[in-house]
Write a protein that binds this DNA or RNA. Structure first.
Length: 312
DNA sequence: CCCCAGTCCTGCGGGC
DNA sequence: TGCCCGCAGGACTGGG
């Protein structure tokens, strides 16, 4: 599930398209529902055709492809979306379930590299044709199809990515601002960290990891946190996300997330609580990891290392 | 302000 | 062995 580290890794993986020009955009035919694109593809295509890419940025869990027209493409991978680059004469073919494979055009089933026998393009959602750079295509792949691609004018950007909808990026936010934005809330700290309007980029996996390392019980109401708690939460927000970026994100056993170079991430080997229900805590070695549900999402924590706040 | 349930979607794993 | 069901959750919406 792409959160900030995975999206940042994707951004770094495609940043070489800066300077390229968009030649066309198309959505491959598929047995699945078409990708959610706005404006509709025909209009989007007219607005981006011939434009040069001036930057590739990121806001929280969204990828931002800036164009010389002042418009920007916003790519939201959500649960299973991925971006890939295809080079000269190479098109991505996608193996069922997991791994994208690269093949020479016109040879659909003669694949380059290892590949399971069943190959399809069903989850290929959007292809952006490029010229003048190292890649000829930017490809958006998404198995569940919850991902979204939007073209926003400068004005729309201000609204859609503005402070009403998106808080400061989790890598940029200061300890003071994080505390200021949350400390009056009665919400559980775990739930609050997932609120993209408060701070952008933390998702379900990293929220559990952050709180375990900060030694804070996930159900603690924000307004019960002490100054030292905020310091630790902030330090771990940054520490965990930075380490995860260094390791190119987390590829869980479902294998869905891959870098733009089609490599798995490495942070899954450093997870201390996520998906480790019943296993011994790696911190204390005594207690076993517990799973609870908060706001309809799984939370994992160590009952010994993350004690609930006693009164006051 | 906050919370909850529902929605979108597909792949997978458990249970029978 | 096959089938059904529920689960996974990011972002959003509508109702309380």
């Amino acid at each position: 599930m792409p959160e900030l580290p995975e999206v940042e890794t994707m951004r770094r993986g495609i940043v070489a398209i800066v300077g390229s020009r968009i030649q066309g955009v198309w959505a491959p035919r598929s047995r699945f529902r078409p990708i959610t694109v706005s404006p509709p593809l025909s209009r989007l295509r007219r607005r981006v055709a011939g434009r040069a890419i001036t930057a590739v940025g990121r806001a929280g869990k969204r990828l931002l492809v800036e164009l010389d027209s002042g418009d920007r493409l916003v790519i939201e991978p959500r649960m299973t979306g991925r971006v890939l680059l295809a080079g000269q004469g190479i098109v991505p073919i996608l193996a069922t379930g997991t791994v994208p494979i690269f093949a020479k055009p016109g040879t659909d089933r003669r694949l380059v590299g290892d590949c399971p026998p069943e190959v399809d393009r069903a989850h290929l959602r959007l292809v952006i044709e490029l010229s003048g750079g190292p890649a000829t295509r930017l490809v958006f792949w998404d198995s569940r199809g919850l991902g979204v691609v939007r073209l926003l004018s400068a004005g729309e950007s201000a609204r859609e990515l503005g402070p009403e909808r998106l808080g400061p990026d989790a890598l940029e936010i200061s300890a003071e601002e994080l505390k200021e934005r949350l400390h009056k809330s009665r919400r559980a700290i775990k739930v609050a960290l997932l609120d993209q309007r408060a701070v952008a980029g933390v998702g379900n996996l990293y929220a559990s990891e952050i709180l375990h390392r900060a030694r804070l019980h996930p159900t603690t109401p924000c307004n019960r946190l002490r100054p030292g708690d905020w310091i630790r939460v902030h330090a771990q927000v940054q520490g965990v996300l930075r380490q995860a970026i260094e390791l190119q994100g987390s590829t869980l056993s479902d294998g869905t997330y891959r870098t733009a170079e089609n490599q798995p991430g490495g942070f899954q080997d450093w997870l201390r609580v996520y998906h480790r229900t019943g296993e011994p805590c790696l911190q204390c070695g005594k207690a076993r990891i517990v799973r609870i549900v908060q706001a309809q999402r799984s939370t994992f924590f160590c009952p010994a290392c993350q004690r609930p706040r006693s009164n006051k």
